[in-house]
Simulated scan of single mutants.
Amino acid sequence: MNTTDAAAKARRTVATIRHWLRRNVIGGTKVGGKWVIDEVSLDARLALDAPTPAPITVEALIRIGGRRWQKAGHDRIYFNEPMSWSTRIDISRYRTGNVSGCTVDDRAVANSRAYGIVTCIDKLWYDVADGKFWARHTNADCYEIRFKDGSRERIDFLADVFGAIKTAARAA
C-alpha cells in the first residue's frame, strides 16, 4: 500500500502518513524511493482512534427493563424473558402464552423447535460487582436450528442477546 492509499484509508493527509512512517508510528519500508506501508500496522494505529463505547450503568440497565436484585453479597440486574432481546428471532404466541409461530432471520422454524429456542437462555443477568453479563443457558452460544425447509444453522444467541442489551443500555 502506498502513502496515497494509506491516507485515503486513514482519512488523513499524505504528509501525516509520511510523518507516522518517519517516527515509526506505522510500519513501512522504502522501495525505490517510495514508501510501502504495512497494512496491519496502519490498521492497528487506526484502531487507537476508534471511540470507546459508553460504559454500561446500573441506572441504564434498569431503565431498559432490568430488575435489580441484592442479596447475600450479590448485586445483579436480571432480565426477564431474555430471548425477547434477540434481534434475530420473531415469536408469536397464542393467548395462552404458548408459541404459535417462530421465524429466525425471516425463516420459518417448527413450533416444537421454537419452544427450544425460546427457552435456550433460562436466566440472564448483569453482575454489578464484576461488570459482566452472565447467563444460565442450554447451548445458546451455539444453538443448532432446523428450519422448516430442512436446512440447519448454528446461531450464537448469547452474543445476539448480550449485544442487544448493551446497545440499548448505552443508548438509554
Rank of each mutant, 00 (worst) to 15 (best):
A10F: 04
K166L: 01
L48D: 13
D106G: 09
R170P: 03
R68G: 03
D49A: 11
S112R: 15
A108M: 10
A129Y: 05
I121R: 11
F79L: 08
P51H: 07
G33N: 10
A114G: 11
I145Q: 13
H19V: 00
T138Y: 12
A50C: 02
S112T: 15
D130A: 09
A7S: 08
G65S: 04
R136S: 12
N98G: 12
R136H: 12
D38F: 02
D38K: 09
I26T: 05
F147W: 06
A7V: 04
N80Q: 13
D160E: 08
T96F: 02
A135V: 04
A159P: 01
A110E: 15
T138A: 15
W134E: 13
W20I: 03
S41C: 06
R18M: 00
Q70P: 00
R68Q: 11
G33V: 02
P82R: 09
K9E: 12
V104A: 15
A8I: 06
D160L: 07
F157V: 07
Y115G: 13
V99H: 09
I64D: 04
T3G: 01
G33C: 03
W85E: 08
R68E: 11
V99I: 15
T16C: 02
R136Q: 13
A72G: 05
A169S: 10
V25P: 01
A54D: 11
N24V: 01
V25R: 13
V25C: 03
M83I: 08
C102V: 10
A110L: 12
W125A: 04
T13W: 02
T4L: 09
V58P: 02
Y78W: 13
I77A: 05
G97A: 06
F147T: 02
V118G: 01
H19T: 06
P55W: 07
M1F: 05
A169D: 08
W85A: 10
P53Y: 04
A10E: 06
D49F: 03
Y78H: 14
D122H: 12
W35F: 03
N139H: 13
N139S: 15
I62Q: 05
E39H: 05
F157I: 05
R107I: 04
G73F: 06
I77V: 15
Y94P: 01
K132V: 04
G163P: 01
W35R: 09
A60G: 02
A168Y: 04
G131N: 11
S84N: 14
L46A: 07
G66I: 07
D130L: 07
R88M: 11
S86R: 04
S41P: 05
S100E: 14
A72S: 10
T4P: 00
K166H: 02
F162V: 15
D49C: 01
I37P: 00
G131L: 10
S41D: 10
I117P: 04
G32N: 11
D105K: 14
A129Q: 12
W134D: 10
